[in-house]
Structure formats: structure tokens, C-alpha cells
Design a protein around this nucleic acid. Sequence first.
DNA 1: GTGTTGACAATCA
DNA 2: CTGATTGCCAACA
Length: 106
Amino acid sequence: MSTAERPLDEYSTRVLDVVDAIPAGQVMSYGDIAEYLGSGGPRQVGRVLATYGGGVAWWRVIHADGTPAPGHDAAALSHYQSEGTPLRSARPPVRVDMRRARWHGR
DNA sequence: GTGTTGACAATCA
DNA sequence: CTGATTGCCAACA
């Protein structure tokens, strides 16, 4: 035990579960995840990732316009190039090609 | 209980 | 692209 991870609520667990389900090379927007879950909002998803996102592929969760999270754009870019995520802009402002990279639950 | 803030989104200038 | 504005929902002081 140990690892003292923060107390995960059911909603947070659900968000992390969805993020963990996103395949490499694809991404989802905060609003998409919120809509996929059917509750909460994009801000709640962002909050969960900002707090508990350390254990999931947070770089696969980006804004609706295809830009990665603030302060992590450089790290996210490395992951995108490593996973082959379709990019519209390979240098800041980093932009993911949402038209191709957007992933829906399936 | 009110007001502010936030890894948001969409629209307008 | 930047900035302002509105809507949305929850956490926090």
C-alpha cells in the first residue's frame, strides 16, 4: 500500500479509465470526454487530469481546437511524434489534426 | 452562501 | 493569432 495516491472519486476513475482507453496516435478533447461520460463538463475533466493525470496518457487529452495542455505542449509534442499522431503543426503552437486524430469511444 | 478560479468551448472583434 | 465575452460545472477561500 503505500503509494498514497489521492482519493479517487468514481467520476475521476471514470475519466482516467477513458483516457487510458485512448489508442496511441489518437486523442480526445476535454469536452469529448465529458460528453462521452454523459456528465460533468470539460472543466471537470481538466481538473481530474490536472490532479490525477500523472498515471495516464494525459497528452492524448487536448483542447477542442487541437492544442495540448498549457505548460506541457513540449512534452506532448514528443509523445505525438513518438506515437505518430497526425499533426497540423509540428512546432508551437502545437496543433493536432483533430479531423484524423479525434477518437470516439467505439 | 457568495465570489473567485480553473490542463474548457464557442463566438465575435 | 490575440483578446474579450458568455456558458458550463465543480472545487476552494
